[in-house]
Design a protein around this nucleic acid. Structure first.
Lengths: 351, 351
DNA sequence: TTGAAAGCGCTAACAG
DNA sequence: CTGTTAGCGCTTTCAA
């Protein structure tokens, strides 16, 4: 029966068995280091016999590189960010790196998570949660740990980030509504402090203004970025004919748009798009399904993930961190049935 | 401009500034170690001044404990396992531990992930993906790293695990169908090699047999544990009236049950439960929503997560690993509208 | 190409 | 309570 004390063979054990020096063993497991082929083979064999696996912790101590990237998640209730997490894991795994995952309560600050991450000497941090004190940003910066904000930014800070062109995306939805003949609107906001929500709303309102729609023709509801929030907001606002139903509702993200559709259906027996048209943002898998068939703005997750990792420069650890990089990736309108398509569009196709 | 070389102040730096020994600094950051309060304060102050954060990597090297737990995910297309991941992260984070997340392609084996995990000296491994060679189990065992299988087991192996009482859950759904008057059935299987799918199906069929339903009255479809798989299987099998529709369909998990409901609605204009009744398993959030309102068996995630962590015995690392623990947690039937409720039941309530 | 030796930053006896 | 000392397992000069 094994005890938890022992943690397996070390490079010295392997060295002894193979009759070489301990550094030779180290070299045998370091691609690109010079070692006689015959010797390498003997070492690998000895290692196999002892079930030797190199200790990455010890390696990290000397190299000062952990090969670990931290991903800090905010709103896990939004499937979009779970998809993002998965994309990061897949890509990073493919590069031989590991992902340390943290969640912070929706709207909470990520300072505590950052502090933990610092202790583990991660090579980089991806942050998808809203709040981050600039103090933490500089703490990471001082220690040479690059941070990239995913889909958010801190105005006035020099933190780097990649995000979807949110305002432009908001405009796309407005255009779609307009093309389908809508004249009165509602939008369901997410986190009122989040730049993502604000930007999408701004683009939406701006485009509408250009088309001559007064701000007063646009109702604002608060959905707090989650399904239930949107469901409840819509249920409450329009119950008993209290407020007049608009022609179109913009869910600032898909999950809220879905909440709105379900509230309309369940509470008021209303059909989309016959009674109200709905637009979303993100293009999550759930929104593509039969009951929703959401017209939405697709965020190109893979591209965004790739660009985020580019900013991290994991392969060139010595390169100084460049502050203030702000990459914006355009979203793309995906037409489905939740907004009646103008004649020139085909459902489920691109804009 | 900072370079990536330097990685911050060390305990020696703090010691120098505070005028104490380096070990005093170590003690100041180790709860429960004896140190004069006045001295501790001075150290903390010096640490703050230097932005000192203890290096967990170095700590792990000496203590042989990383405070890291690995979670290896199989089918990420099933929201249930994402919920499980989140539950683990939340709980582990609360204990001051970190989570290293891995994904393995659906049906792929997790050996490669395990090997990586071993290098990082994790304190424990949670595995939710099907395939795991017994060689890897013993590799972990030898190194004193406890492994627990979540919702699956390897017959004949001494790997520990926690799972829902799947067969019993399958029986619950069968009972519900029977109570609602169904006489002909279909079930949509997940991974045909997965014990989870097999057990649920077995319980379902057994219960039906006891009620006098012949095996030939039960159609088997393959949904591969994913939404699209179930959607396609149902669309294909029943198109053009090729096969006769059963009274009830059991989706071996919720996400497949949802795929079935959508296929029925979109392809054949059929309504649930009026035309066909549907049962699921898992009780994922998506299945509770208006378009689905799935009657299902709830897996008590929190309980299961708790029991899984109990098996890991993270707090008593010296305790030898006990092989072959197999905890089964009962599921609970949740009545919703996808199966017509007998008079004695209230929708959304417990069985 | 190879081995010896010096750490990486920290914890853990062990004296005092 | 506190400082000294000896490593944890590995990488990396530095000579040979």
């Amino acid at each position: 029966m094994s005890t938890r004390q022992r943690s397996g063979a070390t490079s010295s054990d392997v060295a002894a068995l193979a009759g070489v020096s301990q550094s030779a063993v180290s070299r045998a497991f370091t691609p690109g280091s010079s070692l006689a082929e015959e010797k390498r083979l003997r070492i690998v064999e000895a290692a196999k016999k002892l079930n030797y696996v190199p200790n990455s912790i010890a390696r990290s101590l000397t190299t000062r590189r952990s090969n670990i990237v931290a991903v800090i998640l905010g709103n896990t209730a939004n499937p979009f960010y779970l998809q993002v997490l998965e994309a990061f894991i897949l890509r990073l795994q493919g590069q031989g790196r590991q992902v340390l995952t943290f969640t912070v309560p929706n709207g909470g600050d990520s300072d505590e998570a950052i502090l933990r991450v610092l202790r583990y000497q991660v090579d980089g941090v991806i942050l998808t949660s809203a709040q981050l004190s600039t103090r933490m940003v500089s703490l990471c910066h001082d220690r040479g740990i690059p941070v990239v904000l995913f889909n958010r930014y801190i105005p006035g800070s020099d933190a780097s980030g990649v995000r979807c062109a949110n305002a432009e995306g908001g405009r796309l939805i407005a255009e779609a509504f307009l093309a389908a003949g809508a004249r009165t609107f509602a939008m369901i906001h997410g986190d009122p402090k989040g730049t993502t929500s604000q930007d999408r709303a701004r683009g939406f309102v701006d485009k509408l203004a250009e088309a001559g729609i007064a701000r007063s023709a646009i109702t604002s509801l608060e959905g707090h970025s989650v399904y239930d929030g949107a469901f409840n907001a819509v249920s409450r606002h329009y119950r008993d004919g209290k407020a007049k139903l608009p022609d179109a509702i913009f869910g600032i993200n898909d999950i809220m748009a879905m909440g709105a559709i379900d509230a309309l259906g369940q509470r008021f027996g209303l059909k989309v798009p016959d009674d109200v048209m709905i637009g979303g943002f993100d293009d999550i898998a759930e929104g593509r399904r039969f009951p929703y068939r959401l017209t939405t703005v697709r965020q190109p997750i893979d591209t965004m993930v790739e660009k985020a990792l580019d900013i991290l420069h994991l392969d060139e650890p010595l390169r100084p961190i460049q502050p203030g990089i702000d990459v914006q990736v355009p979203g793309r309108l995906i037409w489905r049935q939740s907004i009646p398509a103008p004649r020139s569009r085909t459902p489920d196709g691109a804009a």
